[in-house]
Computed example of a mutant assay.
Amino acid sequence: MFFITKRQSTYNKNNLEHEHKKVWLVTGASKGLGLILVKKLLASDFRVIATSRDLNSLTSELGEKSESFLPLELTLTDDSQVKQALAEGISHFGGIDVVVNNAGYGQIGTLEELSYDEVRNSFEVNVFGSINVIRHAMPYLRQQESGHIFNIASVGGFSGAYPGWGVYCGTKFAVAGFTESLAEEVRPFGIYATVVYPGYFRTDFLSKGSVKTASQPISAYAAARQSEQIHLDEINGRQPNDPEKAADILITVSQLDQPPVHLFLGKDAYQLAHQKIELIEQQLKAQEELATSTEIIEA
């Protein structure tokens, strides 16, 4: 059941008047989808808290601190920094309405060849970084009994059948999983959570600085090396989807009365999702008799 509070009812009546006064927090805002989204938000009179590991990269692209824009240098894996950033943003704008956990990077490499540190760092940024933001944003959102959290995953967080992308897909499956639970946890407070599964968008995600390869590759993994080469040399720069349109969709979805928990972006994402669903349905049916023979037969 969804609970409508008095504050929400009043807000909905004045939605058009107040929509562009909302405060957005966008992580990973110095490039790619995050940068494009922030530019669109500012151009549409929203107020934005934007974070990046490098403050100069933010201000060079988006300008200095102002009444509508607050750039913050932030290491998402530093929990105390995240808490401080949320407090600073709240102090500057007086509140927060939409959170976009966009920061992350791709780690290519098979499970055998990636080191412990390579795997751990990927989960630290892609999973724990987002959870840090959620944990420190929630007290404010609960208090005002409204808000929307977008967690940017990947279609690789729904379909992981790509050699050499297991750890990356694992982090994005984790994002999808905790977002599903988050959506149920926050629903009674009038807050929404959406996991976003983008397909291939023409950003710098597959460029140096956004994607990493195994430091000690194993030559025997021919399929993984081929996938790596295809992504870095052939797909990079030729992705079929427009990130400008993705940013527009996120803004539109944030304004829906009942936003979805799952949001796939791109025809390619839809195709891959349908293929995965069809495969699961086939395997459920094929193994049903055997796999459901687990009940305890009482004497």
Rank of each mutant, 00 (worst) to 15 (best):
M1I: 00
F2W: 01
Q8N: 03
N12F: 07
K13W: 01
L16D: 15
H18Y: 12
E19Q: 13
K21I: 01
K22I: 02
V23R: 05
V26D: 02
T27I: 05
G28I: 09
K31F: 02
K31Q: 14
G34Q: 08
K40V: 06
A43L: 11
R47D: 09
R47Q: 15
V48D: 13
I49W: 07
I49Q: 09
A50D: 11
R53A: 08
L55Y: 15
S57P: 03
L58Q: 09
L58M: 08
L62C: 09
L62W: 08
G63E: 08
G63C: 10
E64H: 12
K65I: 04
S68Q: 10
F69H: 08
P71I: 00
L76I: 13
S80H: 13
S80N: 12
S80Q: 14
Q81A: 15
V82M: 06
A85W: 04
L86F: 15
L86H: 13
I90P: 02
G94D: 09
G95M: 05
D97G: 11
V98M: 08
V100T: 07
V100E: 07
V100P: 09
N102K: 06
G104I: 03
Y105M: 03
Y105W: 10
G106I: 13
S115L: 04
S115H: 03
Y116K: 07
E118F: 05
N121T: 04
F123K: 04
V127E: 01
S130E: 01
N132R: 03
R135D: 00
P139Y: 02
R142V: 12
Q144P: 14
Q144G: 12
S146Q: 14
H148V: 08
F150C: 09
I152S: 06
I152L: 13
G157W: 05
G157C: 09
Y162S: 12
P163I: 10
G164S: 08
G170V: 10
G170I: 11
F173Q: 11
V175H: 10
V175A: 05
S181Y: 06
E185D: 15
A193Y: 06
T194R: 06
V195P: 05
V195G: 05
Y197R: 02
Y197S: 09
G199M: 05
R202Y: 02
T203M: 07
D204F: 01
S207E: 10
S207I: 01
T213I: 12
A223Y: 07
A224H: 08
Q226R: 10
S227V: 12
I230S: 09
H231I: 00
L232N: 03
D233A: 04
D233P: 00
N236W: 01
Q239D: 04
D242H: 05
P243H: 09
P243Q: 10
A246V: 01
D248I: 00
I249P: 00
L250W: 02
L250V: 02
T252C: 00
S254A: 15
Q255N: 08
D257C: 00
P259H: 04
G266Q: 06
G266P: 05
D268L: 02
A269H: 06
Q271F: 06
Q271T: 13
A273Y: 11
E281P: 02
Q287Y: 15
A291G: 07
T294A: 12
I297W: 09
I297Q: 15
A299C: 05
